[in-house]
Design a binder for these strands. Structure first.
Lengths: 149, 149
DNA sequence: GAATAATACTTGCAAATCGCAAATATTACA
DNA sequence: TGTAATATTTGCGATTTGCAAGTATTATTC
């Protein structure tokens, strides 16, 4: 007999553990935060710094520094926007792309393994449930957006 | 068209945001980590330090210090175990219990609000899906357990 | 069109957090 | 009894954090 929160807490914690074992690709060692940054840069279209920071709910100053080290590691490239010279457009270098893709594949494999303990119907139901959940969270104005801090 | 990982990433991030806006109860200000610690102490039965640290996937030394500050804040009590004098049993003080309960209620309210955008059938399906997912993750030996580090 | 406000990003700084290595104390095992 | 294993704490240096303040650029307003 679990409360709703308990279910969520367990799930997100376990997924978090999954994410944590991510972060050595080839010779490169990155942190969990950095893996999330790479993921979002890869996913979004010509994102600015502010955009990614917002998506991840990170303070822009912390983010700026993280990008700094990722640039030093040659995983990320910062290109000044031609339209607005205050803005930097972020993109992945070839190596950054490789790291991101490797982690992504690994994560999807892990998820596959988890779903292998279900039958096809269950798997479909679960995936559609998560989709539904995401839509409901998006609708909810009260919550689930970037935190204040 | 999202990959499985994308669905999970979105969901856990949003739930994370929900968790982040948690942490001022009465006059007391606590961090996200501390809120998770209180939650687990409340949930488990006479847990030891090591137990909670393991559940949360935290390094025991970091955990020890966190407990130190929570004890100073009078939210947590450490009682030496009568059976094994190496271990400390953790429990919540009255105030700690109050803080934990307040956060828990708040979180469940937020989740209710999210589910209010679904009909009863959808809600049931989603909840059972998460339960199923948690069971599958528990079965998976390869993943989802405490990370190595 | 000059002054002012708003935005995007960076840097200084001090606090919090982190995890490894090593220490202590206790219990389990041989 | 001696040795190994376990639970917890402390030293320490590295990393991460976020606020305040700074620079540079664009938008607004009068």
């Amino acid at each position: 007999m679990s409360t709703t929160r308990e279910l969520f807490q367990t799930m997100t914690r376990r997924f978090g553990f999954l994410n944590k074992n991510c972060c050595t690709v080839g010779g490169v060692d990155i942190s969990l935060t950095q893996s999330h940054i790479l993921y979002e840069i890869d996913r979004q279209h010509n994102p600015s710094m502010q955009q990614i920071a917002d998506t991840l709910g990170m303070d822009i100053t912390t983010f700026s520094r993280q990008i700094g080290t990722l640039v030093k590691m040659k995983l990320v490239k910062k290109t000044p926007s031609p339209e607005d010279r205050r803005v930097y457009i972020l993109s992945l270098t070839t190596e950054g792309k490789f790291v991101a893709t490797t982690i992504d594949t690994e994560m999807n494999n892990n998820l596959d393994e988890i779903f292998s303990h279900m039958n096809d119907f269950e798997k479909e139901t679960v995936l559609r449930s998560i989709q539904l959940l995401n839509e409901s969270m998006a609708k909810s104005s009260k919550c689930c957006t970037t935190p204040i801090g």
